[in-house]
Each structure stands twice: as C-alpha cells, then as structure tokens.
C-alpha cells in the first residue's frame, strides 16, 4: 500500500538522511590502509593451519557437553560449534567466529597493539599473558577489524572468552575504544561481540576505569549518529555488561548466554537462596526487555545483514 502511494519514481521521499550531528563528517584525510593490517589476517592466520592440523589428529566423533550425544567433529565445525543435536552454543574462538560471519576474504585487522602492562606488578601476570597470546593467537582479549557482511562494510570487534575469560583490562578497553573511534572516523557501523567475565582483577583500578573509557567512546559515537550493534554471547557479566555491552542501538544475544551484572554465585551468597531456573540467561533478558532478539549463531550473519541493510543511507 505504502509502496503504491509513493511510487517507484518517488522512492527517495521515503529516505531520511539524518544524523544527530549534521556538521560531523568522516575523516577523509585518513586512509584506511593506515589503520589496517596488510592482509586478511583471519583466513590466512597461523591458527587456521594449526586448527587444520588438529583436524586430522582428533577423532571423528566428539561428545556434546550439554546433551552428551555423539556428534561428528566436522559437523560441529560446519555448524559453528552449535551442537547439531541439541542446539547448545559451545564456545567458539574469536577467529572462527569472524570467519563464519564475514564475506570471505574481506576482513582486515585493525592495527591496535597495546604493549603488556602490569600496573599492580601482579605476580606471574606477564607469563600468563604471553602464554595465552601464543595459545590463542590473539594480541589480547579482543580481535577487531573491518570486514563486510553481505556486502556491507562494518567495524567488527569480537571478544575472546578464550583469553582470560574475556576480562577487560587496559588492552581490551583500548581495543574496544579504538573500534568505536575507527567506526566513527570512517562512518561505519560497529558490531561488537561481547564475551567477558568482567573487569580484569590483575589490573586493579585501571580495569575499572576501562568501563568509563569505553562507555564514553560509545556515547561519543552515539552522539555522532553511529550505528552500534551489540551481540551478547556467553558470558557477558560484570564490568563489560555494565558498560559498552548494554549501550547498543540494537542488542542481540546468543541463545542461553549468561548476561548480568553480578555473578550468580555472588547473588546466591548475598540473598542466601537458590536462583530461579534460567535466571540471567539470554531468554530471561529478552523477557525482561533488555534484548531485541535472540539469534542463533547460524543466523547471526543474516540478521546482522538485515540490520545493516535497514540502516543504509541514501546513496547519491
């Protein structure tokens, strides 16, 4: 009906091209090559080789830790680590998540390498981080870059729960802030996949300050009219849930993800009783009005594609 009213030749009338800050312009001086790593570092990453190698070594079948059914490893991988039998969303590495999400060969990592910091001189911390970097092939708890989803460019940042439970210290806070700033600079939408137990205890008060830093960056991006899509995955708690994770224009969540401020154990200890079934799970948050939609990992690409499409600006 509406289509008929406006007619094909008047299609433009349906478009509004408004941003909150009309004077704000993308930084044209900035060349994306200055802030991006040279090549598609995900498809060609060393991890891929390593993972492929393990493919041949691991047995063909594995047991789903949720339903205890035997599932073939290759099916599990093809299904992005969602159990084909019960639909349980197993943890997935940041690299694999991006590979399953973006148009092949379009992802380039943002240059944002933070040196190791240890403000509390926490014993054995450097050792722990070095080992994790080698094991996960991540610089720190966030993998960020620019890629395309169904032909639409976006800044994408993925937190890795495999890196010290995705906890947010200086490096994670800086990389998330950088993702907001790059999306702002190039006028691109921003998609963040959160996975975090909260602030990183080993960096003390400076971890707490990352909440203010990232939230301020989110607010500035918001004021400039940027689109920020938050995808909450298991778990998103503590300092990350209470900062940028809950500041999205659109909030999606993976099925069954634990999302909340205080951890379930802390709440149980405080109130001295058992928590209700399903408490703080994605479905519970959807019912209580904090999540637009629960999206299975296999549908994420399509749904994100739709949201990006709906935010297309008029093309001149």
């Amino acid at each position: 009906m509406l289509k008929n009213l406006f007619g094909k030749h008047k299609k433009d009338a349906l478009y509004f091209n408004m941003t909150k800050d009309e004077t704000y312009e993308a930084d044209v001086e900035m060349n994306p090559d200055d802030v991006l790593e040279k090549e598609d570092s995900i498809d060609k990453s060393a991890t891929k080789k390593k993972e492929d190698k393990t493919d041949s070594e691991t047995p063909e079948m594995m047991t789903c830790s949720k339903c205890n059914k035997e599932v073939s490893v290759s099916d599990m991988k093809k299904n992005l680590y969602v159990c084909p039998e019960c639909g349980y969303h197993h943890p997935i590495s940041a690299q694999r998540r991006i590979r399953g999400l973006v148009d092949q060969g379009t992802f380039r990592k943002l240059k944002c390498n933070i040196p190791f910091v240890n403000p509390l001189d926490y014993p054995d911390y450097e050792d722990k981080i070095t080992k994790l970097k080698n094991k996960t092939n991540l610089d720190e708890g966030v993998l960020s870059g620019i890629g395309e989803i169904e032909g639409r460019k976006a800044v994408i940042a993925v937190m890795g729960s495999e890196f010290l439970m995705g906890s947010m210290g200086i490096a994670v806070g800086e990389k998330i802030t950088n993702a907001f700033e790059m999306a702002d600079r190039f006028k691109l939408p921003l998609i963040i996949f959160t996975a975090s137990g909260g602030a990183r205890m080993q960096e003390g008060i400076l971890s707490l300050m990352q909440m203010a830093k990232t939230s301020a960056a989110a607010e500035r991006f918001n004021e400039h009219g940027g689109l920020y899509i938050a995808c909450l995955t298991n778990p998103t708690t503590g300092g990350v849930s209470a900062s940028f994770a809950t500041l999205g224009d659109i909030t999606l969540a993976e099925p069954g993800a634990l999302i909340g401020f205080a951890g379930p154990r802390v709440i149980e200890q405080t109130i001295g009783q058992k928590l209700p079934e399903g408490f703080q799970r994605a479905e519970y948050l959807e019912t209580h009005g904090y999540v637009d939609r629960i999206v299975s990992r296999n549908d994420m690409r399509t749904v994100l594609g739709q949201i990006l499409r709906l935010h297309d600006k008029r093309r001149k």
Binding site: A212, S215, E219, A245, L247, F261, A262
Partner: peptide, 10 residues
C-alpha cells in the same frame, strides 16, 4: 543493574 550503570557512565 548492568544497563543502569552503563547508561550513567555514558
């Protein structure tokens, strides 16, 4: 709780 705190920070 989480979104109330986040909103204040922002």
């Amino acid at each position: 709780q989480a979104s109330a705190i986040a909103k204040n920070l922002a």
